[in-house]
Design a protein around this nucleic acid. Structure first.
Length: 558
RNA sequence: AGCCCCGUAGUGUAGUGGUCAAUCAUUCCGGCCUUUGGAGCCGGAGACGGCGGUUCGAAUCCGCCCGGGGCUACCA
């Protein structure tokens, strides 16, 4: 109510509405985001985070943050810390509901004992390979383990000894006794506990048996009073097992709902592949601005609101789909256009000398910070006799559609003067310096006689400008679907995904910015201050370019 | 091959038997405007996988076919 959202409800919200109508959960809505701390969160997780936290807040419910840490061999504290930081940065709050699966190990153990007592679980001595072999195939039923019909007493004793550490890794497992001929492989006596003499980041050496996902997850949801356990499509075939465990236990039973995970063009999304990029040194860590990780996008300069908007736009459904990267980029531009102050900076400086200005000329111009946001105010930008402009904004012999500076041509220097190029100083064929004249009556940039100039270019004052290193980022891959191509996905890495420009010149006000501040360099794109920045060593990341129709024209003329 | 899931413009998405000669966004193409070749505004292109059936009427219901995805870890 009161919602301006006119878009249709997705199938998950429809299910929840139905539950509300029938009173299945007494009108309660309680979701959870359950990451495994075995890697950094990526944009795919952001979709799930926005879904779970978003639904909770829309229905005035709650959403828990729960670490699914049932496998100590893969999980690390570094990852839990990064995940906490990322979810918070995205703008979501789990209040006091931060949980760990490992908090429930004791209870899970007791419930497993209950199942053994009911004759629904047994200890199996078969090794992993044999269990796999006995499981049968997709088209043929499995065979029962010779240990399947041990007595309850024997199972109880063996399980207690597993827990006590009497056996080595892999010697025994606890299995649910369901149906080895079931057409759903997940129901062929799934493993509930395995022996792992490994130190757990949370419980230390307290346990040497650890629960499997299927056994643990439903129980965790049940304990926390989750109403809607939202997960991705690959768990669809696990739902019968999720339901079976909860039904056999006779405990509170949430509803599992599956949706399609996010795929993005020009990127890989699996944690395994991302880990490969990090470990292989193809990128500079999990937070490399080229990575689709939350931390990478944060460092790149993506605003959290842009990511949230994006997640809202892509919708949620069960169809496997791949979203165009352009949609994410659109969300980023849209948000940054609205909120970022503008500055001027020159990536590739070309010196300009204004011949009709005195050597010591210095004039601080009033400049609007953000034309989209009057409340952003104005700032002072120094204009002087010696300036730098972008090298590519000048052409000695310009083609038809090039409107920028050229010999004899007048353009507007943004927020300053109309300027005409009167001479070109060259050295060995290379343009070294431009001699120009300003129209003194055009201060501010308006033509005194209303004459039109075709283009406006950016500039900085040579003696006031700050030196900066600017890192230009582009797509990490050269193909839409790196995993769908022949060979290794790393063969399709874009060699131009990172270009470091040193010796860039930026207006003085940029020096007052802090790490993580986002802004626009006029005509170039959106940028942010990189955490590598130190005193006197300004490092800037380009988040994304502005839309560039000139670049498009050039492409068409190739 | 067994089980499960899914098919609406290039990409996503709305649609829940008539008001669908099908929504919105993105993309692409024109135009307008402009002190960012930005932003904004206006216009255009572009889809119900196929075949049957039910019905006065089907994108919506049913059947078959075709196509795509998932499942054979002591991972999650």
């Amino acid at each position: 109510m009161g919602d301006e959202e006119k878009t249709g409800r997705d199938f998950i919200r429809e299910i929840i509405d139905e539950h509300d109508r029938t009173g299945r959960f007494q009108g309660r809505v309680h979701t959870r985001f359950p990451p495994e701390p075995n890697g950094y969160l990526h944009i795919g997780h952001a979709k799930s985070i926005c879904l779970n936290f978003g639904i909770a807040s829309e229905y005035r419910g709650k959403c828990n943050l729960r670490f699914d840490d049932t496998n100590p061999t893969k999980e690390e504290e570094e990852y839990v810390n990064s995940i906490i930081e990322d979810v918070r940065w995205l703008g979501f709050d789990w209040e006091d509901r931060l949980f760990f699966s490992s908090d429930y190990f004791g209870m899970m153990h007791d419930r497993a004992v209950d199942l053994i007592k009911k004759g629904e679980a047994y200890v199996d001595d078969l090794d992993a390979a044999t269990i796999s072999e006995y499981r049968g195939t997709l088209t043929t039923p499995g065979r029962e383990s010779p240990y399947r019909n041990r007595t309850v007493e024997e199972n109880l004793d063996l399980f207690a000894r597993m827990r006590a550490g009497e056996f080595n890794d892999g010697d025994k497992v606890l299995r649910a006794k369901i149906d080895m001929g079931h057409p759903n492989m997940n129901m062929r006596d799934p493993v509930m506990y395995r022996i792992l003499h490994a130190r757990h980041h949370n419980t230390g050496d307290e346990w040497c048996i650890y629960p499997m996902y299927d056994w643990a997850h439903g129980l965790e949801d049940s304990i926390e009073g989750i109403t809607h356990s939202i997960c991705t499509l690959e768990f669809e075939n696990h739902r019968p097992l999720y339901d079976w465990f909860l039904d056999e236990l006779g405990v509170y039973h949430p509803q599992q709902i599956e949706f399609a995970r996010l795929n993005l063009t020009f990127t890989v999304m699996s944690k395994r592949k991302l880990l490969e990029l990090v470990k292989g040194g193809y990128v500079n860590g999990w937070d490399d601005p080229r990575m689709p990780t939350i931390s990478g996008m944060r460092r790149r300069g993506y605003p959290p609101s842009a990511i949230r908007n994006f997640c809202g736009r892509i919708g949620v459904a069960k169809i496997n789909s791949t979203i165009a990267l352009e949609l994410l980029e659109h969300s980023v531009r849209e948000e940054m256009n609205r909120s970022c102050p503008r500055y001027m900076g020159v990536l590739d400086p070309l010196k300009v000398v204004i011949e009709n200005l005195p050597d010591d000329h210095e004039d601080w111009m009033d400049v609007i910070n953000n034309p989209e946001d009057p409340s952003a105010g104005t700032r002072k930008v120094p204009f002087a006799k010696e300036l730098y402009i972008e090298r590519e904004d000048f052409m000695e012999d310009p083609p038809k559609k090039f409107f920028r500076l050229a010999p004899g041509r007048e353009v507007r220097f943004r927020n300053a003067y109309l300027v005409t190029c009167t001479d070109v100083m060259k050295e060995g064929g290379e343009v070294k310096e431009l001699i120009c004249r300003v129209d003194p009556d055009s201060r501010g940039g308006d033509a005194p006689d209303g004459r039109k100039v075709r283009s406006t270019i950016h500039w900085v004052s040579a003696k006031h400008a700050l030196d900066a290193e600017i890192r230009l980022y582009d797509k990490l891959f050269t193909v839409e679907d790196p995993m769908g191509e022949e060979g290794e996905f790393t063969e399709y890495l874009n060699p131009g995904s990172l270009v470091v420009k040193k010796g860039c010149r930026v207006e003085p006000a940029v020096g007052g910015l802090n790490t993580g501040d986002r802004f626009q360099f006029e005509r170039l794109g959106y940028f942010t201050i990189d955490p590598d920045t130190k005193e006197g060593d300004l490092i800037v990341n380009r988040t994304i370019t502005l839309k560039d129709t000139w670049a498009k024209v050039q492409q068409q003329n190739v």
